[in-house]
């Protein structure tokens, strides 16, 4: 389907609201103010994403996945690069940040912590989307994995792998940059429903 700039604008706003909510909770957990930036949102077909993925590289990310079913179905990921993940873990657990974040290995302890952080962010975004679009969805329990982005996409069933929505956000916690990505992978029918629902709300508003 054709995606108009207004559609992207709407999705960006919903992601923005969700990330804001997630960041508010993280701010309370860390006891630090979190500075937010406007998320960048883009939408790809799997082919287009293949090209982008080759530019993104094969960096391994900490990813928290959430399967959703209902008016629209698919898989959502909250993705955090290793160095950002370490900053967040240090901020939340109150440890002193170290210089070589990217080189530190993750342990099962980190995985548990990251699962909760990712859960907070992804719930913010999914909550914001379903709230505004007034859609009821059912969800799986979140699960944690470490993988590169192409592998994450491959994990989603073929029928749900037709539209890929990528939102990139930056948060600054004690002046440290935390990068996060939200990836929503859906079948084209689901994606059309999502966009159509958003257009309806805008049209209602215009009436």
């Amino acid at each position: 389907m054709e995606i108009a700039p207004q559609d992207l604008d709407g999705i960006r706003e919903l992601v923005n609201i969700g990330v804001g909510k997630g960041a508010g909770i993280l701010s309370e957990m860390t006891g630090s103010t979190i500075e937010l930036t406007i998320p960048e949102v883009s939408i790809y077909t799997p082919d287009e994403f293949g090209q982008l993925a080759s530019q993104i590289g094969t960096e391994r990310y900490s990813a928290i996945s959430l399967d959703f079913r209902g008016a629209f179905s698919g898989m959502a990921y909250s993705i955090i690069p290793a160095d950002s993940a370490h900053i967040l873990i240090d901020a939340i657990t109150g440890e002193e940040p170290s210089d070589n974040g990217a080189e530190r290995p993750f342990t099962s302890i980190h995985a548990e912590t990251l699962k909760e952080i990712g859960n907070i962010l992804i719930n913010g975004v999914m909550g914001s989307i379903t709230n505004v679009l007034k859609s009821q969805l059912t969800y799986s329990l979140p699960s944690y994995c470490e993988a590169d982005i192409p592998s994450l996409i491959q994990k989603v069933g073929q029928e749900h792998r037709e539209a890929i929505l990528l939102a990139e956000t930056h948060m600054f916690i004690r002046n440290l940059n935390i990068e996060g990505k939200i990836l929503m992978i859906m079948g084209s029918a689901s994606f059309e429903i999502l966009v159509e629902r958003m257009r309806e709300i805008s049209r209602d508003s215009e009436a």
Partner: peptide, 25 residues
Amino acid sequence: NTHAFRTRIHSVLDGGPPAVFSSQL
């Protein structure tokens, strides 16, 4: 009874995704 806990539980009650609370945090 903190804002963070309440917000997260309320979003589940509002039909949002499951919330997980790690033993590490």
